[in-house]
Nucleic acid binder design. Structure first.
Lengths: 155, 155
DNA sequence: GTGATATACGTGCATATACACGCATCAGTA
DNA sequence: TACTGATGCGTGTATATGCACGTATATCAC
C-alpha cells in the first residue's frame, strides 16, 4: 500500500502551494485538447477582454511580476495569438493586442475552461469559492504591506 | 493613481495561483536573512523530521512531482545541507539525509518561518486557516480523481 | 535648460514545476 | 530460467516565477 493522500502541512504557505499545484493540474488537464495551459489561457483571455494595453498594465491587472509576464507573453506571441507593437504617444510603451488566431483560440478554449470551473464549483461548493476570493484579497493586501514597505522610510 | 489591488478573477485557479504567489512572497521575505526560500525550507525541514528516505517517498509526502523534487534537492545538496547516498539493500534506492550544516540551518530558519506563520494566522484568523487545510485535501482528492484515472480502464 | 525622480521595458540569473523518455533492478510468473 | 510488469531514478525540454540590473524616456522642480 502506498501513501495515498498525506495530510496538509502545518505550514500555510506549503498548503497553499500544494492547493495551487493541485488545481493547476485540473485546469491544465481540461485545456489539454487545445494545447494551452491555464496560465496562458488566463493571459490570453485577459488581453482579449481588455483590448490593447502595455505589459506593465497587464502585469498589474494580473498581479504578476512584469518580467514574468514578459516571458509568458513570448510563447503566446510565438504561437501567433498576440501581437506586440510600439504605441503612438509615449515611445517607451508597447501595446499588446490579440490576433484573429488568438480570438479563435479563446473561443475554442473557453468551454474547456468552463468545464474545469464547474468541476471545481461542484466539488468545493460556492461557500468555499467565496472564501477563496476573500483569501486572495487578504493575502495580497498583507503581502503589499509587508514586502513593499520601502515607501514610507519617513525621512 | 495606479491600480492598487485588482479584484479577484472569476477563475478559481487563477485566484489560487495569485494567493499562492502572494503568500510565497511573505514567507520568502521572512526567510531572507538565512538566504532560504520557503520551498527549500519546506524540503529541508521535512528531511530533518522524517530521517533518511528516498526521493520517491519524499515526493509522495510533499505531494510534489518526483522530478521536480530531484532538482529542488540539487540546490540543497550544493549548499551542503543534505547528502545523497546509495542505500544498502535495493541498489536502485538512494537515501537522502540531512547534514550537520543542514540541522544548524533548520534551527536558524525555524523562528523566521514561525514569524511568517504567525503573521498569517493573525491576519487570516484560525477559521480561514482551517478552511485552507480542507481546501488542500479536497483539491488533491479531486485532482487524483480526474487526472490519475488511468487506473480503471475496465478491460 | 538642467538635474532628480519616476516610469517603461528587456535580459541575466536562479529556482520551481511537471511531462516524456530511457535505464536499471526487483518481483512474480510461465 | 526467461518473460513481464512494477518500481526507483535521472535527464531533456518547456514553462512559470521573481530579483537585480541596465537603458531609454517622460515629468517635475529649479
Amino acid at each position: 500500500m502506498k501513501t495515498p493522500n498525506p495530510n496538509p502541512s502545518v505550514c500555510s504557505c506549503v498548503n497553499l502551494r500544494r492547493a495551487s499545484r493541485a488545481i493547476t493540474r485540473i485546469y491544465d488537464k481540461a485545456l489539454e485538447p487545445v494545447d494551452l495551459k491555464i496560465t496562458q489561457y488566463s493571459v490570453l483571455a485577459n488581453v482579449a477582454r481588455s483590448g490593447p494595453l502595455s505589459s506593465s498594465n497587464l502585469a498589474r491587472i494580473l498581479r504578476l511580476d512584469r518580467t514574468t509576464l514578459v516571458r509568458n507573453l513570448k510563447s503566446l506571441q510565438a504561437a501567433g495569438f498576440i501581437e506586440d507593437h510600439p504605441e503612438a504617444g509615449d515611445p517607451r510603451e508597447r501595446a499588446i493586442r490579440i490576433t484573429e488566431a488568438g480570438h479563435l483560440m479563446v473561443d475554442k478554449a473557453r468551454p474547456l475552461w468552463g468545464l474545469a470551473q464547474r468541476q471545481i464549483e461542484d466539488h468545493l461548493g460556492s461557500a468555499a469559492l467565496n472564501q477563496l476570493t476573500t483569501l486572495v484579497t487578504s493575502l495580497e493586501t498583507l503581502s503589499d504591506h509587508l514586502v513593499l514597505n520601502h515607501l514610507e522610510e519617513s525621512p
